[in-house]
Structure formats: structure tokens, C-alpha cells
Design a protein around this nucleic acid. Structure first.
Length: 350
DNA sequence: CAATGAGATCGAGAGAAGAC
DNA sequence: GTCTTCTCTCGATCTCATTG
């Protein structure tokens, strides 16, 4: 669901969300630490990706019930939350194939330009340079953990990705194809479909912390109506190392601009409350929604052939609620226009 | 006209200084 | 001590001009 740009502009007239450069398909993401046996680490959700925008060479260590986990960066620094975009792309490509019952392999072949477009990034030379650096950080970041099994302590180490290979096109020296080999554990996650679907607007989140908060909300709130967490605990989960005051100010800003996909955020004392937007939409009384004429559904079928117009109506209602339930002079025209845009963006599957 | 390059600007985080 | 404000660094991002 795209956000109404005109109603979501910051005081400093800078949109909270990045522009939607390209309409994407479904996103899937796996929680990295889910890869580790769940009995031992299910209750641990430690940040793996750095939120910093400059090289972060800290070694992160966590301990929980005699299980130790250590995240070690290469000299290039920890993989950042922006680097995770590349991993999300690889996982999504494999999941899409898997969902179509096509065979999947641990090595993903992808077009560099497609990756940049799909992850809502710049396709400039700088964009390509940053992509290579991101792959280097992903490959260089190692996770080491010890697990006790039958009295024996086993230490496992793995990278975020196993390896990558860049194929450059000769005329301009620009890279064209990238081959990424995923780690065994990452591949197991995909095989087990232990992934979450992300909003398309995830890639439009500007701040690293906002992306991390969305992931946490996505995992914990999920389809529930509401999820509540203490502010300091949320900060701990995000891994943000800034001062508590700065973190609280950031959450306040998130509340004020209300631009987090899928969830609305509120502060209640020392707690942060995530409200599922879909659940919120359901609570709007039927009489409050704009009335549509029966002919409009016929018009919608014409502009969006192959789509379920009643499903589109539901999406349109969600969009209307997200936009702040504005008064519409002509709901029918707005609905048909919405269907037309939707159909252009996602042509009906045959 | 899409892809690309260059320079400007933003943001996270850290540290310092000053007010209370 | 606590809190706010300012400055700095550097990668991410924005904007606009150029290229093929």
C-alpha cells in the first residue's frame, strides 16, 4: 500500500519515506538467528546487522542460558541493515521459485541492475560500488555460537553468505551478473519456509533503526491487533547504541509521522504499542466507509481485468483508512482510479 | 530516455561543552 | 550527576547534469 505523499510530509518538508522507485513483488525475510536450533535460541533475538552508517568493527557478544553467540565483523565492518536488503532479495527470489514448485539451488544468480531496482536503490555507479561493499560485508561477517548437545559443546561458525562472484560486462566495466552462494543454514531456512513476508514499503524506510523496529514489530506483532513492549527493551532488541533519550525521541518521531508499514505506533508511558493497521481498519464502522455505486464495480472490472474487484475494494478501504479517511468528493472515481493503478502495477496472473 | 556520475545533504553515533 | 545542544565522521541518499 503506497502512502499518500501529500499527507505524509515532515515539517522540514522532507518525506519520512523514500520514494517508491519501482513497484515490487512479495518480500520474504528470515530472521537470521532463527537458523540456530530454536530450542536453544528461540528466546534470543539479538541484533546481527549494524545500524551504523559508518564502518562498525565491534565484536558483538551475547549470552543466554549458557549459550554464547558472537558476531565478528571483517575489517570492512559488520554487515549493516542496508546490506540485509541484498539477502532479502536472494531469499525472496528463492522463495518465489519455491512457491511455484520450481527447484531451488543454494547458489542464486541475479542481475545486478534488477537487484538495485527491486530494493528501491539508486542504479548509479555509486549504487553498484555500494552493492559490492555490501556483499563484502555480508561475506565477512561471521556468527559463532556454542551449543551443548548430549553434554558435548559444539561450536558452530557461519557467515551471512558463503561466497559471491561478480561477472562484469566488458564494454563499460559495469557489473552485470552476480552469483551468490548462501550458507547452509540460510538455505535450510528457505527449504523450511521459515520466513516472514515484509511490506513493499520496507525498502522505503529511510532510517536503519526504523527498519529494525519494523522487523521486530513484524515478528512479534504479526497478525495480532496489538503488541506492547517496554521502551528500553525495544531499544535493546534493536541493538541501537545511542542514548536512551535519543532513541525515545526517534520513537516519538515515528509516532508523529506514523509512516511505519503495516503498524501504527503509539507511546504509552514507558511502553511502545504497535497497532496492526489492518485490525484498525476493521474497527472502522461499515457506515463510515465511502459508498460505492454498483456500476463502479463494473468499471473496476474493465480497468482491472482478471482482478477480484471485491478484494480491490477491501484494499482501497485500507488505503483510505491509511490516508486518514479523507472526505471524497467522488468515491466512485477514486475507487476506479485506484483499481486502474493497481492493475497497472500488478497485472492479473493468468 | 534510462543509466550513470558528481556533488550536496542527511542520519547514526560518539564525544565535548555548558546549564541546571 | 543529568540533560541538552553542538560538532564531527563517513556511509547512505538526494538532486541534477551528462552520457550513450
Amino acid at each position: 500500500m503506497s502512502v499518500n505523499e501529500t499527507t505524509n510530509v515532515r515539517d522540514v518538508d522532507r518525506p519520512a519515506l523514500l520514494p517508491e522507485r519501482h513497484p515490487n513483488h512479495d518480500l520474504f525475510v528470515c530472521d537470521v538467528l532463527d537458523a540456530i536450533p530454536k530450542d536453544d535460541l528461540a528466546s534470543m533475538e539479538h541484533p546481527v546487522f549494524s545500524l551504523a552508517t559508518k564502518p562498525d568493527t565491534r565484536v558483538l557478544s551475547y549470552e543466554h542460558r549458557h549459550v554464547k553467540i558472537q558476531i565478528t565483523p571483517s575489517v570492512k565492518g559488520l554487515a549493516t541493515i542496508f546490506d540485509k536488503d541484498l539477502l532479502i532479495y536472494c531469499v525472496s527470489q528463492l522463495m518465489a521459485r519455491k512457491n511455484q514448485n520450481q527447484p531451488i539451488s543454494q547458489t542464486v544468480q541475479l542481475q545486478a541492475h534488477d537487484l538495485l531496482v527491486w530494493t528501491n536503490r539508486e542504479t548509479s555507479g555509486d549504487g553498484y560500488r555500494r552493492m559490492v561493499e555490501a556483499f563484502e560485508r555480508l561475506g565477512g561477517t561471521r556468527i559463532t555460537t556454542n551449543i551443548k548437545a548430549d553434554g558435548e559443546e559444539i561450536t558452530n561458525g557461519f557467515g551471512l553468505i558463503d561466497s559471491f562472484r561478480i561477472v562484469r560486462s566488458t564494454p563499460t566495466g559495469r557489473m552485470s551478473e552476480v552469483q551468490v552462494r548462501l550458507s547452509d543454514w540460510m538455505f535450510k531456512i528457505i527449504q523450511g519456509s521459515e520466513v516472514l513476508t515484509l511490506s513493499r514499503d520496507y525498502f522505503r524506510l529511510r532510517k536503519p533503526i526504523e527498519r529494525r523496529i519494523y522487523e521486530i514489530a513484524r515478528k512479534h506483532c504479526g497478525e495480532q491487533d496489538e503488541w506492547r513492549i517496554a521502551l528500553d527493551l525495544l531499544q535493546k532488541k534493536t541493538g541501537a547504541s545511542s542514548h536512551g533519550r535519543a532513541f525515545k525521541a526517534m520513537v516519538r518521531e515515528l509516532v508523529e509521522h506514523d509512516h511505519l508499514p503495516d503498524y501504527s505506533v503509539a507511546i504509552d508511558g514507558d511502553s511502545v504499542v504497535f497497532l496492526n493497521r489492518e485490525a484498525l481498519a476493521e474497527k472502522v464502522p461499515e457506515s463510515a466507509f465511502p459508498k460505492l455505486q454498483p456500476e463502479s464495480f463494473n468499471d473496476a472490472r474493465i480497468v482491472a481485468p482478471g482482478h477480484d474487484v471485491y478484494h480491490l475494494e477491501q484494499e482501497w478501504r485500507d488505503f483510505w483508512v491509511d490516508s486518514g479517511m479523507p472526505t471524497l468528493h467522488s468515491p466512485d472515481k477514486a475507487f476506479v482510479a485506484f483499481c486502474k493503478t493497481r492493475a497497472r502495477r500488478n497485472p492479473a496472473m493468468s
